[in-house]
Amino acid sequence: MRLLTLTDFGVTRRKRDILRGVNLSVGTGELVGIIGPNGAGKTTLMRAALGLIDCIGHSSICALSPRERGRAVAWMPQSREIAWPVDVETLVMLGRTPHFVTGQRPRDEDLAAVARAMQRMDLTEFKGRTAMRLSGGEQARVLIARALAQETPLLMADEPIAGLDPAHQIATMRSFVDLARDGHSVIVSLHDLGLAARHCARLIVIDKGGIAADGPPRDVLTPALVRGTFGIRAYLESTPDGFVFQPLEVVA
């Protein structure tokens, strides 16, 4: 089953092609990392695929009604907005919004989904705390939990692990791996290529408005691509501990 299909997909803004000729599809049980330099179009690709900005070509998610989309895919934007001093549990419960009918109160299954999401993100002890007063990294975990509570087949997150401490970065990537193992799919954009290489089964490199490479980390992160796309030289090695990627220096 395909959870996301983009065909001849592109985005044009102010008469400039931001993205063009994108073709990709994501099935079930995949953890896909979207990588690329700043301004390459990672966020634009994800927002356009969701139908949040105008696009050309076909996206399978755009074709859904807003309500169906809310049940098919959860989206965690890059800007971590929390407008009001609500408590953590209430905020995570917002993820259940697409599952409610007008005027409905949370059912047992909603409460269970919220509890599972908070467990996954190690937030159980924060339940009653005011989300706005948490640290930036803790807020990020709350917002990831919100997206997890939506319990959709596909989760898309824009730089979810930026600003998290190493333990929570790894734990978050592990919970995405677990989700993929359970048959969900996760598409995350991230800048930490080391974490991307270790945890994602598939990497999509966005560069200059198109897909520069798409495949398993070992095939994608070649010295030539790392040099051409990111302008860096890196240490890449398969070790007994898994694939290790460490950026070393900037190349001209």
Binding site: R69, E81, I82, A83, W84, L91, L94, R146
Partner: peptide, 11 residues
């Protein structure tokens, strides 16, 4: 509360 983008994506 989560911003316009997140709200729109939730339907």
């Amino acid at each position: 509360t989560l911003g316009e983008d997140a709200a729109e994506a939730m339907g």
